[in-house]
Design a protein around this nucleic acid. Structure first.
Lengths: 212, 212
DNA sequence: CATACATGTCACCGACTGGTGACATGCATA
DNA sequence: TATGCATGTCACCAGTCGGTGACATGTATG
């Protein structure tokens, strides 16, 4: 009968759940967090919004499910990959490289940028997941850097910690902002040249963190 | 008659326009940019949304009118007010003080913080006004600092410019973010203590900007 | 006084939102 | 084979949104 071709709607809960979760990610990546809603996600998944309520309980729970499948943030290894200077006197260059890689990571991960933007206007399962992940990975990174360059942990936490917060915050801001407003202080933040200049500046400033 | 007490609705275009403009500012300050809409603004102004269309043409034009009445950003004088170090060797401390005052300004101007947050998800008359204002004032600040500390303008633009962009971006990010998510890298950004630590870090890093 | 206009008020429209009940259909089990 | 349940589909609800037309009323002008 014609049934076979028509009624081919998968009829499998796991598949529908998976399609809903990936659809959410696609919406975020393509349209931004402003476009997220039960209707849009269900349409993108090719199913009905009723499934969101039946299988997840609601949009917040679907968002939570999505947050558990994804990995939004870098791992310390990503930023400390070779080639990276080792000796203590090269620490400023290493910091600049970490800065560069942090920026490159974000510029290559649009969903993370959207969630970072979301954090500015709303708290939800996704932003809380990213927040928790970033806090943990930042601490790990700091410890890893201290270990690699032979700094005492408490000293690193006192001196390097706030500096990493400052520089990291700057990267988060400038990359997130650049999606819609590329110009900042006369620089085009979508260009590699601007980021090279910024990285150079970081290298120079980082020198003062190690000296005396 | 009872007319006088009942029909006291001002019946004056200028007054209604002014109430609409101030109502927009109140909505932004109290509820954030997500709550801005013709219905909400008209209700806050105690009038009818028809007036927004009749007198301004629509919400975007009302927003534009509001943007022309307000002054969202610091002036260079605000950040360079006395007491501020003068001598070239004190430049790092001056930079740290500018950083502190930038942060203090934003923490005291919730509407500006909301517009900064808005920039992350949307472009409109308000965000463009703030963008233009900030770009201009930043350039003025840089020139003023160069003048005050006897730096050649092109040198200042090359070395101090990117550093100001980095530090300023960090302040924008951390203050805007702290409205909803105060914790960042283990610091409570609503506390003065955290900002004191950050300022100290800036002072240390700025030393490397002047040396050699 | 009578006319014309500006101001303010109200009701309504279509579109979209989140959310729910009712129903058809297929599969697994008794 | 027949019953029960899970899956999927559709229609509908109430609420809000931006936007507009129609009307009442006050004021200034002829």
């Amino acid at each position: 009968m014609a049934d076979e071709s028509e009624t081919n709607r998968v009829r499998e809960r796991a598949g529908t759940e998976a399609r809903l979760i990936t659809a959410l990610g696609e919406i975020i990546a393509k349209k931004g967090f402003g476009a997220v809603g039960v209707n849009a996600v269900a349409r993108q998944a090719g199913t009905d919004k009723v499934m969101i309520y039946r299988y997840f309980g609601g949009l917040p729970e679907l968002v939570r499910a999505y947050s558990e499948t994804a990995d939004f943030w870098w791992r310390p290894e990503d930023l400390l990959a070779d080639p990276l200077p080792d000796t203590p006197e090269e620490l400023p260059d290493a910091i600049a490289l970490i800065f560069e890689r942090h920026a490159a990571f974000l510029r290559a991960h649009p969903v993370t940028l959207e969630v970072l933007a979301w954090e500015m206007s709303e708290r939800n399962a996704l932003t809380e997941c990213l927040e928790e992940l970033r806090e943990r990975r930042s601490a790990e990174l700091l410890a890893a850097v201290a270990g690699r360059f032979g700094l005492p942990q408490d000293n690193a936490r006192e001196r390097l910690g706030p500096a990493f917060a400052l520089l990291g915050g700057s990267v988060n801001y400038l990359t997130t902002r650049a999606r819609l407003t590329p110009i900042y202080d006369g620089m085009d933040l979508t260009s590699d040249a601007a980021w090279a200049v910024l990285s150079e500046t970081v290298a120079r400033m980082a020198k003062a963190l190690v000296e005396h």
